[in-house]
């Protein structure tokens, strides 16, 4: 469904992604972990071309997307993305946040868009917040709204960039729960996270990223119990100690 073929990216002469080839099949839940600054966000952002790779190819649903002439807006519509900092639109109500893209892009008439929004809000138990502004929501609520804002467009894949990293600890669980439900419904997901529990229980495959390279790519059991890469062993010993 998504494939990168040898993508590289530098910022100011510093190589951040080094020749990365990764394939994500439909229905997979790929979790990306790795130390800070290893290029996880940059890689994720290359998938929907928020960052354009200097070299290599990005493919989505059978077409190469980093090629002139491709309507990137149409591609992005099918790839939901959730950010660490929520990025809700503060000047619009929750309802407007949810319906803006649907109506602006002419995908759904206003009433139908609102029905979709109400349905999604109900699903995450925030129906009563429909006409509030984002500033009235807690961090966890904001992130859940951000998730359904992406879902409103009925995407084929969801990208998550550390969706729980800026949340107070007591709100992490409510967001992970929504993500788990989404996973159970069969959504294809690519998730950058430090939540090892989530990686273990939801991930179908885990990638370890370090210094711009994928150093390990394995199913969760193998990834945690029998890591091959030395840097990964070191990384796991650190984060697993932190969990205990």
């Amino acid at each position: 469904m998504i494939e990168t073929k040898g993508i590289s990216k530098s910022f100011a002469g510093k190589l951040v992604l080094d020749d990365i080839s990764v394939k994500v099949e439909k229905g997979e839940k790929v979790v990306i972990v790795g130390p800070s600054g290893s290029g996880k966000s940059t890689f994720l952002r290359c998938l929907n071309l928020l960052e354009v790779p200097d070299k290599g190819e990005v493919w989505f649903e059978g077409q190469q997307t980093n090629r002139p002439g491709v309507n990137i807006n149409e591609v992005r519509r099918k790839m939901g993305m959730v950010f660490q900092s929520f990025n809700l639109f503060p000047h619009l109500t929750v309802m407007k946040n949810l319906t803006l893209a649907l109506t602006t892009l002419g995908l759904k008439p206003e009433e139908e868009a609102q029905e979709i929004a109400h349905g999604l809000l109900k699903k995450i138990g925030l129906s009563e917040k429909a006409y509030q502004y984002p500033s009235k929501l807690s961090g966890g609520q904001k992130q859940r709204v951000a998730i359904i804002r992406a879902l409103a467009l009925n995407p084929d894949v969801m990208l998550f960039d550390e969706p729980t990293s800026s949340l107070d600890p007591e709100m992490v669980e409510e967001v992970l729960k929504v993500m788990k439900e989404l996973a159970e419904e069969g959504m294809t997901m690519v998730v950058v996270t430090h939540e090892m529990g989530f990686a273990k229980s939801v991930g179908t495959r885990i990638l370890f990223m370090d210094e711009g390279k994928i150093k390990e790519n394995a199913p969760p059991e193998q990834f945690f119990n029998d890591p091959q890469n030395d840097r990964l062993k070191e990384f796991l010993s650190k984060v697993l100690v932190k969990i205990v």
């Binding site: 928020l50 807006n73 992005r76 519509r77 790839m79 939901g80 950010f83 990025n87 639109f89 467009l153």
Partner: peptide, 25 residues
């Protein structure tokens, strides 16, 4: 915040639409 432009663009809005509906207001 530059996250606002990114959020608009990831929803499939064009640069101009995002500017008009999200950034300028």
């Amino acid at each position: 915040d530059k996250g606002q432009m990114e959020a608009g663009r990831t929803l499939g809005l064009t640069y101009v639409q995002t500017m008009k509906l999200i950034i300028l207001p």
